[in-house]
C-alpha cells in the first residue's frame, strides 16, 4: 500500500478516535494539572464525584426513558412501515413525509411550541417528554421497518398459511422472526433517542426529570471537574455501545 494511503488512513483513524481519548484519560485521573502530558495520579475520584452527583438514579431514569420510547416507537413504526411498504395507504408519499417531519423540524422548536400547550393542558412533564421523544424516534423506526418490509417476501407468510398457520400465527412464527434483525435495529435507534436526549428533557421536563445527559451538561458547563465530566460521558456512551455490539453480533450469527 502506498505511503500516502497509509498516512491518510492513519489520519482518519486519529480523527475518529482522538476526541474520545481525553474522556478515557480524564475518567481515570485523580490529579492532572497542566502542563503534564499524562495524569499525575490515577484513581476513581471522578467516579466517586459522578456517583455523588446522582449518576446512579440518573442513568436508571435514562434507561427507563429509552426503553419506554423504544417500546412505543418500535411497534408503531413497524406497523406504519408495513403499511407504507405496500401501496395500500392513500397519499402514501404525503403520509411518509408527515411521519418524517420530526427529522426536519428542530427538536427545540417543537419542544418550545408544545411546552406551553402541555402546561395549559396540565400534562405531566414525564408524559410530555415521552410523547415528544416517541414522535422524534418514529421517523427512524418507520423508515427502517418500511425498508425491511419492502425487502420481505410475503410468500413466506402465504406458505405458512397454506401449511395451516392462522394469520396471527404466520406473523408471530414467520414474519417477526424473519424481521427480528430489523426490529432490533429499530428498537436500538429508538432507545438511543430516549437515552441520549437533552434538549427535550430540559425544556419539557422542566428540571424534574434529571437524566444522565442533564448531569453531563451541568457538569460540563462548570470548570474544574473534568474527571467527573469524563466519567459521566463514558457512562452515557458505554451502555449503547455495548448494545450496538450485541445487536451486531446477533445480526452476524443469524
Amino acid at each position: 500500500m502506498a505511503l500516502g494511503t497509509r498516512l491518510g488512513r492513519a489520519a482518519l483513524a486519529v480523527w475518529l478516535l482522538l476526541p474520545l481519548v481525553p474522556l478515557v484519560l480524564w475518567a481515570a485521573a485523580d490529579r492532572w494539572t497542566a502542563p503534564a502530558v499524562l495524569p499525575q495520579a490515577w484513581g476513581t475520584a471522578g467516579l466517586r464525584d459522578a456517583v455523588d452527583s446522582g449518576a446512579g438514579t440518573a442513568s436508571l431514569r435514562s434507561t427507563v426513558l429509552g426503553l419506554v420510547v423504544a417500546a412505543l416507537a418500535t411497534p408503531l413504526g413497524a406497523m406504519a412501515g408495513r403499511a407504507l411498504a405496500g401501496s395500500g395507504v392513500p397519499a402514501g408519499g404525503a403520509v411518509l413525509a408527515a411521519l418524517l417531519s420530526p427529522l426536519v423540524l428542530p427538536p427545540f422548536a417543537v419542544a418550545l411550541g408544545l411546552d406551553v400547550l402541555l402546561l395549559r393542558l396540565r400534562v405531566p412533564a414525564s408524559v410530555g417528554v415521552v410523547l415528544l421523544l416517541t414522535v422524534a424516534a418514529l421517523p427512524y423506526t418507520t423508515v427502517l421497518m418500511r425498508t425491511a418490509y419492502a425487502a420481505h417476501d410475503p410468500g413466506f407468510e402465504e406458505e405458512a398459511r397454506t401449511l395451516g398457520a392462522t394469520a396471527r400465527r404466520a406473523v408471530l412464527a414467520v414474519q417477526l422472526p424473519m424481521l427480528a434483525p430489523a426490529l432490533a435495529g429499530a428498537a436500538f435507534l429508538a432507545f438511543l433517542v430516549g437515552w441520549s436526549d437533552y434538549v427535550v428533557t430540559l425544556l419539557v421536563g422542566g428540571g424534574q426529570l434529571v437524566t444522565l445527559p442533564l448531569l453531563v451538561a451541568s457538569a460540563a458547563s462548570s470548570v474544574g471537574n473534568e474527571a467527573q465530566v469524563a466519567v459521566l460521558s463514558l457512562g452515557s456512551v458505554l451502555p449503547p455501545l455495548a448494545l450496538l455490539v450485541a445487536v451486531g453480533l446477533l445480526g452476524r450469527r443469524r
Binding site: 406497523m79 406504519a80 405496500g86 395500500g88 403520509v95 408527515a98 423540524l105 408544545l114 410523547l131 414522535v135
Partner: peptide, 26 residues
C-alpha cells in the same frame, strides 16, 4: 386499503398532533 390505513394511523396521529400543535402553538 382499510387495513393499511389502520396500521399507519397509530404512528401518524401522534406525529401529526405533536408537530402540528407545536407549530401552530409557536
Amino acid at each position: 386499503r382499510r387495513r393499511a390505513v389502520l396500521l399507519v394511523l397509530p404512528a401518524l396521529v401522534p406525529v401529526a398532533a405533536v408537530v402540528g400543535a407545536a407549530l401552530v402553538s409557536a
